[in-house]
Amino acid sequence: MGAIFNFEEKCGMAITYREINEGDNQELAELIRTVLREFKVDKPGTVYTDPTTDHLSEVFKVEQSVYWIAEEEGKIIGGCGIYPTSGLPEGCAELVKLYTSAAARGRGIGKMLMQKSISSAQQFGYHQIYLESFPELSTAVAMYEKAGFKKLSAPLGQSGHFACNVWMLLIL
Score class of each variant (00 low, 15 high):
I20E: 09
P89F: 12
I69L: 12
H55A: 12
I82S: 04
G78R: 01
S86Y: 03
C80V: 05
E73W: 03
L88G: 14
T85C: 11
K75S: 14
E19Q: 15
V41H: 02
V41E: 09
N25R: 07
I69H: 04
T49F: 06
V47L: 12
I77D: 02
R33D: 10
I77V: 15
D42C: 06
K75L: 14
K61R: 11
K75T: 15
S57P: 04
V59H: 04
E19D: 09
K43Q: 14
F39N: 03
D24C: 13
K40E: 13
K61P: 01
V59R: 08
V41K: 00
L36K: 04
E73H: 09
Y83N: 04
G91F: 01
K43A: 13
G87F: 10
E73M: 11
Q64H: 07
L28P: 03
V41Q: 00
R33W: 14
R37C: 10
P84K: 07
Y67S: 08
E30F: 09
C92N: 12
E73Y: 06
E94Y: 06
K75F: 09
G87H: 09
E71G: 12
T85Y: 05
G23E: 15
S65L: 02
I82Q: 04
L28R: 11
E71A: 11
E63C: 01
E63W: 03
I77S: 05
H55E: 03
P44D: 11
E72D: 05
G87A: 14
L56P: 07
L56K: 02
E30A: 08
D42R: 05
